[in-house]
Amino acid sequence: MEFLATLPNNLLLYVVVAHALFAIGLYGMLFRRNLIGFLISLELLLQGVGINIMAFGTYLVPDPIQARITTLFIIGIAAAEAAVFLGIAVAVFRNYQTIGVDELSKLKG
């Protein structure tokens, strides 16, 4: 019970949660049928990365400001990437009337 009580201050917990989110996001990227589902899993992956950087920056570095600035930059870059992705998804839907990752295979073979 005391071990559970020290968990919020434990670096390993944040590392494990970050890696778990990364794995969940990667699984979603491999197995979702829809481009928007792919984007949602990609955002989960980036969350995992953000938590990892923030946790390492808080616990192992004397000055935690660098980790916070890096995390803010990651949040900004993920937002830009989501915007471009959605522009492409809307354009693809308009031209091919489908957005499933298995049907969009004109470049194959």
């Binding site: 197995f31 049928r33 829809n34 589902g37 998804a89 809307v90 489908t98 957005i99 499933g100």
Partner: peptide
Amino acid sequence: TRKTEDEGVK
């Protein structure tokens, strides 16, 4: 871009 046939997970 809603199309209910290709939602879902493999």
